[in-house]
């Protein structure tokens, strides 16, 4: 595998292999000194054109634990603000000798466009509303960890919220279905893409109808600008119809898992404290972020032989 840009591109086998590799990384992270020399001499550049806390930090932590060198590209202090084109920025950093770019950009397709300007591997850390494959890997790994299953055959996963503008949803729908889950999308029609008839999903506009049969309830963040754009009348109304309330938590199955990719909008889609939910995986999602991204970096950049030693 040269790049990781979408779950589709990765395929079911690639997905399963990465999840398996993540187990090894999780083991490394349990050690007193969670660091191995696997990527010594390799350089990973994070190219974040959009704000990010957990994704950027977990990639950088992952790279450091594998002993790779890291470059952080900060858009606000970079030459991009002097009008440097994306092509020149990528070419310039490539010239410094970079093995991988971790890219986040508000525009769809950037990880594919920059391929023509660099020989480095490209990891998509989120492109517009399109794909966020490492988040999907994190989520699959987290569900596997909680359910002790390899695949999700027969599992009912419900994704709630702003599907239309969500790269997390697009990657997760692909990943969850590849592993055999039945995916249901719950949102008002205004927050769904114009036509999802070709997606392997069910659609329901009423959250209360699907909660009792869900094995996993995956809540998405609702951005407040969706109100001014006319997607929802008010946040209060959205929150009543699609938010996770104490009352709704009570109708969850005992074994049901609750997830959220963060950052949470408390009082909007999350009207409760996640710690009030018995099976909330939200903290595990963050914790697993580093292991998953170590697996991705190792798979793309590693020689495959030197995972065992001490740094």
């Amino acid at each position: 595998m040269k790049h990781l840009r979408s779950i589709d591109e990765l395929g079911a086998n690639g997905l399963l292999q990465l999840l398996q590799l993540t187990d090894h990384m999780a083991e490394i992270n349990q050690r007193p000194v969670p660091k191995v020399p696997a990527l010594r001499g390799r350089t990973v550049a994070s190219l974040f054109f959009e704000d990010s806390t957990r994704t950027r930090l977990s990639f950088e932590t992952a790279a450091k634990r594998l002993s790779a060198d890291t470059l952080t590209f900060n858009v606000s202090t970079s030459s991009v603000n002097k009008g440097e084109s994306l092509r020149d920025t990528v070419a310039t950093i490539t010239d410094m000798g970079v093995d991988a770019f971790v890219v986040r950009h508000k525009s769809v397709g950037i990880p594919w466009q920059i391929e023509q300007w660099t020989k480095a591997s490209i990891i998509n850390a989120g492109d517009g509303a399109h794909q966020h494959p490492t988040q999907a890997l994190v989520d699959c790994y987290t569900i596997r960890e909680a359910t002790h299953t390899t695949r999700f055959d027969g599992m009912q996963i419900t994704i709630v919220g702003d599907i239309k503008h969500s790269r997390v949803a697009r990657s997760n729908i692909q990943a969850f279905s590849m592993l055999g889950a039945k995916v249901t999308l719950v949102a008002p029609p205004t927050l769904l893409p114009p036509d999802v008839s070709h997606w392997p999903v069910e659609v329901n506009h009423h959250l209360d109808e699907v909660i009792p049969t869900s094995d996993v309830l995956y809540m998405l963040r609702l951005q407040s600008e969706r109100m001014s754009q006319g997607h929802v009348p008010t946040l209060r109304e959205y929150s009543e119809q699609y938010g996770l309330t104490q009352k709704r938590v009570a109708t969850l199955r005992d074994s049901a898992l609750v997830m959220h990719p963060g950052p949470m909008n408390r009082g909007v889609e999350m009207q409760i404290d996640p710690s009030d939910v018995k099976n909330s995986l939200i903290h595990r999602q963050v914790a697993n972020g580093v292991s998953v991204r170590m697996a991705v970096l190792f798979d793309l950049l590693g020689s495959g032989a030197n995972l065992g030693g001490q740094a």
Binding site: V108, H130, Q131, H165, R170, P193, D195
Partner: peptide
Amino acid sequence: AVMSECQCCTDLGLPG
């Protein structure tokens, strides 16, 4: 809007 509103724009997450 970037492209025609269709299934492909659904997949790409582009405004249709």
